[in-house]
Computed example of a mutant assay.
Amino acid sequence: MLITDDRYFQLVHTLTEAHAGTDNFVVMGRVWVENQIQVALCKADIYPASSEE
């Protein structure tokens, strides 16, 4: 599944914010959580269309 860059990054931002109170967010930091979300989305074939080019 492909989604536009704006929608992808909004999804990553929303999911990152949803983890704001978790232990992983506090201990590992925002960048780590955001990276984990992006890895999971890529594994699920959900990534910006520009990633395929």
Rank of each mutant, 00 (worst) to 15 (best):
D45S: 14
D6E: 03
S51L: 07
V12Y: 01
I46W: 04
L41I: 03
A18R: 13
R30I: 10
T22I: 10
Q38N: 05
D6N: 02
E53L: 09
V31I: 15
E53C: 08
Q36Y: 01
Q36S: 02
L15N: 05
V39K: 08
Q36E: 04
L15C: 02
T16M: 06
A49F: 13
C42I: 08
G29Y: 03
V31Q: 15
S51A: 09
R30M: 07
P48R: 01
E17T: 15
S51M: 10
A40C: 07
V33D: 02
W32F: 13
W32V: 11
D5P: 05
V31P: 12
V26E: 05
C42Q: 12
D45V: 10
M28S: 14
V31Y: 15
A44D: 13
D6H: 01
C42R: 14
D6M: 01
M1Y: 06
N24V: 09
I3K: 09
E34T: 09
G21R: 10
H19G: 07
N35W: 13
Q38L: 02
F9Q: 03
D45K: 14
A40W: 05
I37C: 04
I3F: 04
A40D: 10
V27Q: 09
L41K: 02
V31E: 15
A49T: 14
A40L: 08
I3G: 08
F25W: 06
M28W: 15
T4G: 13
P48S: 01
L2G: 12
T22S: 14
S50P: 04
E17V: 15
V39G: 01
L11P: 03
W32P: 00
R7F: 04
E52A: 10
T4H: 12
N35R: 15
A49S: 14
I46G: 11
L2T: 11
R30L: 07
D45F: 11
E53K: 13
N35E: 15
W32M: 07
A40Y: 07
L11T: 00
E52W: 08
K43G: 06
L15F: 05
Y8C: 00
V31N: 15
A20M: 10
A49E: 11
V12F: 01
L2Y: 11
E52D: 08
L15R: 06
D5V: 02
L11W: 00
L41P: 04
V26W: 04
H19N: 08
